[in-house]
């Protein structure tokens, strides 16, 4: 396929001067159409290392671009722009600006793991998608996704008490994502629970909202988990040089 193929020309790269004269010749309007270069002028080796430092991205360097992941992808079937093979390549070559063009669709991976089974090199593309979404969030390119917020609320509770309380999870999730708690489907669900659940269970569920039960002897496990999570987070911050980014932003202000 020739590299000047029309579908590769991006509207924002087209330059047309309404009034332009070159060496005495009037080339106004379409005569002066100029396509800005899309030449790759350098590789950024740090990018692959950053993604590889996040959970799921460890095996990205194995990719040899066969396309099995994209070909087997559930989301790609619905949206041809969802192309894990391509993003893996952009990351490996450090074409950051190109990757950022797709930041709004990368998180749409549904983790079906068809790619994981199709990949001949065990790249685990599903993990790479997860790491890439994570990277986009950590770097501030995309806001925290709802699923990430849900995961955080869920794990905060488990880390703290060793237990999960559904009512609290749901309330916090709606609050943190700025959604109204009074969702018609939720009201309907609660109504039916009240109607159909045995009274003893309802009482216990209701009480759990006030007394926060804990798993017996949980504090040891909690400390170990918290230590591990802190370790991982600091490792990720370091790998992505997030503190440098923050420092640079502070200086700019």
């Amino acid at each position: 396929m020739p590299i000047h193929e029309k579908s590769l020309i991006r509207p924002e790269n087209l330059q047309v001067h309404e009034k332009l004269e070159v060496e005495g010749v009037d080339v106004s309007g379409h005569w002066s159409t100029f396509i800005e270069s899309r030449v790759v002028t350098d590789y950024n080796e740090a990018m692959e290392d950053e993604i590889a430092a996040l959970p799921g991205g460890e095996y990205i360097h194995r990719c040899w671009q066969c396309g099995s992941c994209t070909n087997s992808c559930t989301v790609h079937a619905l949206n041809p722009d969802f192309n894990p093979r391509y993003w893996i390549y952009l990351i490996r070559m450090g074409m950051e600006s190109e990757l950022l063009r797709d930041k709004e669709i990368i998180w749409q991976c549904v983790s079906c793991n068809k790619c994981t089974y199709a990949c001949p090199r065990d790249v685990v593309p599903e993990g790479v998608m997860k790491a890439t979404s994570h990277w986009l969030e950590l770097k501030g390119h995309t806001p925290k996704s709802h699923s990430m917020i849900f995961d955080e609320i869920f794990s905060e509770q488990v880390f703290k008490t060793g237990k999960i309380e559904d009512g609290r999870t749901v309330r916090r999730f709606f609050k943190r994502t700025g959604q109204a708690l009074r969702q018609p489907w939720l009201e309907e669900m609660v109504k039916r629970l009240l109607r159909n659940l045995p009274i003893g269970m309802l009482t216990r569920m209701g009480m759990a909202n006030f007394i926060t039960p804990k798993t017996k002897g949980w504090s040891g496990a909690r400390d170990a988990i918290e230590e591990y999570v802190a370790e991982q987070e600091s490792h990720h911050r370091q790998a992505l040089r997030l503190d440098d980014l923050v420092e640079a932003a502070r200086k700019e202000l």
Binding site: I3, R38, V39, V40, T41, Y43, M93
Partner: peptide, 9 residues
Amino acid sequence: LVKRPITIP
């Protein structure tokens, strides 16, 4: 693979 010209140092 990305159908782009490259000029890499």
